[in-house]
């Protein structure tokens, strides 16, 4: 029940068509970046001139927006994306230990992708599950009370 779309290899024509569907929107750039990332897994450098041309913006504008927002990635992530909450309410419920355990189990640090491409681990700041932390999103699906057996179980889902 993953929330992320199946990702397909980069295709410039397909990208241009997706961006063209956003043209009629008021302020189409963010929706365009989102749809490119949802489709191809990231917004590669090749996408920038296409988006700029279709939306009639400068490349610098597109680049500036792309790099401002934490969500947009310019290279693909791992096959699974685990976003672990690092904000205060989860800290108060022991998220630092949970994150350390995740890092050990997955063999990477927050912000990294495993060299085998299996998983990317990222920090997020609050998922609105602040009375049920530690909390995380795995490919968009929420998980909470991530301690002990529940955390172990999540890790086996990430790395079977």
């Amino acid at each position: 029940m993953s929330a992320s779309l199946p990702q397909i290899p980069w295709n410039a024509d397909h990208a241009a068509a997706l961006v063209a569907r956003c043209v009629a929107l008021e302020g189409p750039l963010l929706p365009a970046l989102h749809v490119i990332q949802a489709t191809f897994g990231c917004v590669p450098d090749e996408a920038v001139p296409i988006i700029a041309q279709v939306l009639n913006l400068s490349r610098a504008d597109v680049h500036g927006v792309l790099t401002f927002y934490h969500d947009f990635r310019r290279v693909p992530a791992g096959r699974r994306i685990l976003k672990f909450c690092a904000a205060e309410a989860c800290q108060a419920r022991g998220s630092a230990d949970a994150i350390a355990q995740v890092e050990r189990a997955l063999g990477l640090k927050v912000g990294e992708t495993r060299s085998d491409g299996a998983v990317t681990l990222e920090a997020v700041y609050c998922l609105g599950l602040c009375a049920s932390g530690p909390a995380a999103l795995l490919d968009g699906d929420p998980f909470a009370r991530l301690k002990g057996a529940r955390l172990d179980h999540l890790l086996t889902q990430v790395l079977p």
């Binding site: 904000a87 205060e88 309410a89 989860c90 700041y125 609050c126 609105g128 602040c130």
Partner: peptide, 12 residues
């Protein structure tokens, strides 16, 4: 945008 840690009323 409900970015504040410790809040979830908007989400609910």
């Amino acid at each position: 945008d409900e970015g504040d840690s410790g809040t979830f009323a908007d989400r609910m």
